[in-house]
Design a protein around this nucleic acid. Structure first.
Length: 273
DNA sequence: CCAGTATCCTGCAGGC
DNA sequence: TGCCTGCAGGATACTG
């Protein structure tokens, strides 16, 4: 579900509502997720610790705690963090609840269980297997300089390369589709068979679409919402994602959808070359 | 090393 | 109405 803009929006909401709060109790049931959720471990470690400003790396949230340690979170396809009053109805698939010292609670909900919530002790972050693999942080690097050579060196379709978190961290299906449409590049085009000029344009569009989406609070397609229950408003700006069989906003040609990199990819045969 | 596929899991929309 | 299929905002183990 969530890509970089959605995760960043969640991070900002938690920075406001969660930072400074102390964990008083841990509730939930251990369950198989992308990595096992170990409620017993969390119960033995978390109470008494206090949230500070959370960080984000790609699509991962790092919920730092004082005096030490971090909760590493990924929302997968269907994950949600909710910061609510205890009286709020408990959604199905609420796997973990952290009681807070202001009487509210943080809930981790994830029906499909592709997400994760694991403890990283002091020093464990540096060699975490998932974090270590991540590539460029797109909004904090000179993306237009760094990304094009990486794309040029590969023969896979650009669409697949944009989804590869080892190259650039945080782009998912929505924003890959949007960036390729904006850049006017066919998603199946091989990185190695694209000019550096066009790759630079693509990198610029990746940055632009991510920045714009962050400003709009991300994209709500189905059920994405911020921890305080708000939605993202970038969906109205989508010009390619989900628009197959509809006319291109730029040239009028009917958009089509192909599966590229294992994911449905809407694109315009008229103006994406 | 690289590229492509299968897989984990639930919910929901659409076809019959 | 019910049943079945396929698809969904992701990451990764595995295969050639």
């Amino acid at each position: 579900m969530p890509e970089l803009p959605e995760v960043e929006t969640v991070r900002r909401a938690l920075a406001l509502g969660l930072a400074g709060r102390c964990i008083t109790a841990v509730r939930g049931r251990s369950v198989a997720m992308r990595r096992p959720l170990d409620v017993e471990e969390l119960r033995s470690l978390l109470p008494g610790r206090r949230f500070v400003e959370p960080r984000r790396r790609g699509k991962y949230l790092l919920l730092d705690l004082a005096p030490a340690g971090t909760l590493l979170n990924h929302l997968g396809m269907s994950g949600r963090l909710m910061l609510t009053d205890p009286s709020a109805p408990i959604a199905p698939h609420t796997h973990l609840t952290l009681d807070l010292d202001d009487g509210r609670e943080l809930r981790f909900v994830d029906p499909r269980r592709f997400g994760l919530m694991v403890w990283l002790g002091p020093g464990e972050e540096a060699d975490d297997s998932s974090l270590a693999r991540l590539g460029i942080e797109p909004l904090q690097s000179p993306l237009e300089n760094v990304l094009p050579p990486l794309l040029k060196a590969r023969r896979a379709p650009l669409k697949s390369l944009l989804l590869d978190q080892r190259l650039v961290a945080g782009v998912g299906n929505i924003y890959a589709v949007e960036a390729l449409w904006r850049a006017g590049i066919r998603p199946s085009r091989a990185g190695s068979r694209t000019s550096m000029g066009r790759l630079t344009r693509l990198a610029a569009e990746v940055r632009a679409v991510l920045e714009e989406a962050v400003e709009q609070g991300g994209t709500t397609i189905r059920d994405y919402a911020t921890p305080d229950g708000n939605f993202g408003y970038f969906a109205v700006n989508l010009q390619a994602y989900g628009r197959q069989e509809k006319p291109c906003e730029r040239c009028g040609t009917t958009l089509r959808a192909d599966v590229i990199g294992g994911r449905t990819t809407a694109w315009c045969p008229g103006c994406q070359t």
